[in-house]
Design a protein around this nucleic acid. Structure first.
Length: 486
RNA sequence: GGCGCCAUCGUCAAGCGGUUAAGACACCGCCCUUUCACGGCGGGUUCAUGGGUUCGAAUCCCAUUGGCGUCACCA
């Protein structure tokens, strides 16, 4: 006996935006399928014409590709169960809706959606259309009256289904309304198309957000109505965002960047985002490993590691993880990819780009921070003399006034050829020894004078090298002038 | 409001009846050090509350509280 081939699917509606929560859903579906040597399907649920977004399908395909989540079947690659875009499957839904009417689990409803038919419990309709005679229905249909097809829910009892994460979930049938299956425009609703397609496409495991927990009994009743085998349900806990007041709510734009694309634009690496998102609601149980390649994720993934409680998206941790990826990257790759995140870099920095990047590597959590990190190298900030004061190194403004002229004089004796970190450092070290100074004291003064800010990527001599002889000396003299003018 | 889901450090989390309640991020301290970062070492009243069950409960049950979801011809 061979186990049934696992088939999972990611079924987004084309909104032109890949929310981190959706990405995670896609990722788990992919990881589970791949870990079981199964098939991962991409299906587009575009049954809401009002919300149609141009090129959204292309966007989804590109985003999944960037995240290295690769479908085995889908709109752009085909497969044996297509089409994979719901708007191209309308005849199928119509056929199955009518079939369900014949089976006695659905009925035609001719109620006007704009008219309030509510007799109490549900808005927009009452159940009178359930009792229409065949003659009445035929009359309406012959007359060309618009209609919807509604699911005929049991009025009593309850429906129970099994969820891998939550166990048995039971909902009283009285909570279930006779939901619309086929809309006036002939399009199916989500709750209908989803079931039809999942069955027709042979989906074995439905991995989706927890927001569907309470509507799943409707789906179950549909499966049962057709006499179809139930798939396995796995409802994922939502991804939350932290509010300013400390409370949490479902991750949304007000929490900052919430789409895969936004994060990439901020300079987080796609592989780091995927890695972080994987850990947000799942853990490998048997190891404390946190850095995972996609292959490793596939190898380590199991449904048991999924969490059933909501997880708060933490930009700090994402930043840390991204930093780990950055540090693991080759110098060349870092320098190359970092270029996309800066503009108007002056020649002298361009020339030393590789060296600058090596200074930046351990100091940025993402590429997007590079711009602000190097701003002072492009233009020296105006700064107050109090910046020279540093308690630990016993630096005072007077000390700065005393040492800076000497150091400038020393630096002027070093020519272009000797203007590099090692040599500058050696020369200054000799000077410091001769004067019996503290290294921290002299270097601090020099660094502040040339940088104009207290925290910098790299030490004094590294900055001197980066800026080059000419600009360094200009900056130092300017700072000295400001100091003596006090 | 009805119905449903959830509840271990600030955050992600391990734990599945007997543990000194892991680990990571963040935070704090120390070390390293030409600042910062990196790196190293160390630190912290975390089991929502109240009842059970049990020799024994973070682990099982119930209630309470809180958070979230859902009640569309949206998905």
């Amino acid at each position: 006996m061979t186990e049934k081939q696992v088939r999972t699917r990611f079924a987004p509606s084309p909104t032109g935006y890949m929310h981190i929560g959706n990405l995670r859903t896609a990722l788990y579906g992919y990881l589970f399928a791949k870990s079981q040597k199964g098939t991962f399907i991409l299906r587009i649920e575009d049954t809401d014409r009002a919300r149609y977004v141009a090129d959204a399908v292309d966007f989804i395909v590109r985003t999944l590709d960037a995240a290295r989540i690769v479908p085995d079947e889908g709109p752009d690659i085909g497969g044996d169960y297509g089409p994979y875009v719901q708007s191209e499957r309308m005849e199928i839904y119509k056929e199955y809706a009518e079939k369900l009417v014949k089976l006695g689990h659905a009925y035609y409803c001719f109620c006007d959606p704009d008219e309030n038919h509510s007799t109490g419990e549900f808005g927009g309709y009452d159940r009178t259309c359930r009792d229409l005679s065949p003659e009445e229905i035929k009359a309406h249909l012959d007359n060309g009256d618009p209609y919807v097809i509604r699911q005929k829910m049991p009025l009593t009892g309850e429906t129970t289904y099994f969820d891998v994460l939550h166990g048995n979930i039971t909902i009283p049938n009285s909570e279930l309304e006779d939901q619309v299956l086929l809309k006036r425009d002939g399009m199916p609703t989500y709750n209908f198309a989803n079931v039809i397609d999942d069955h027709l496409m042979g989906v074995t495991h439905i991995i989706r957000g927890a927001e569907f927990i309470t509507s799943t009994p409707k789906h179950v009743l549909l499966y049962q109505g057709y006499g179809w085998e139930l798939p396995t349900f796995i409802h994922l806990a939502p991804v939350m965002g932290k509010n300013e007041d400390g409370s949490v709510s479902k991750l949304s734009k007000r929490h900052g960047a919430t789409s895969f694309d936004d994060l990439v634009k901020m300079g987080y690496l796609p592989e780091a985002i995927t890695n972080y998102v994987a850990l947000l609601g799942w853990n490998p149980k048997t190891t404390n490993q946190e850095i995972f390649s996609m292959e490793e994720l596939i190898g380590a993934f199991s449904l048991e590691g999924l969490s059933k409680s909501p997880a708060v998206f933490d930009y700090d941790k994402l930043g840390w993880l991204n930093g780990e990826y950055l540090k693991a990257m080759s110098d060349e790759e870092f320098a190359e990819r970092a270029k996309d995140f800066v503009e108007n870099v002056p020649d002298y920095l361009e020339k030393n780009w590789g060296k600058l990047c090596s200074l930046l590597r351990t100091r940025v959590a993402r590429f997007g921070e590079i711009g602000e990190q190097i701003a002072f190298l492009i233009e020296q900030p105006a700064f107050d003399a109090s910046l020279y004061v540093n308690k630990r190194n016993k630096v005072t403004v007077e000390k700065a006034q005393e040492l800076l002229p000497d150091m400038i004089a020393l630096l002027e004796t070093i020519d272009e050829d000797g203007w590099n970190n090692d040599n500058l450092y050696a020369k200054l070290e000799a000077y410091i020894a001769e004067k019996e100074l503290k290294k921290g004291l002299a270097m601090w003064v020099l660094r502040i004078a040339v940088a104009g800010q207290s925290i910098t990527p790299g030490g004094a001599t590294e900055l001197l090298e980066m800026l080059g002889r000419k600009i360094s000396l200009e900056r130092l003299k300017k700072s000295l002038a400001n100091l003596t003018a006090l």
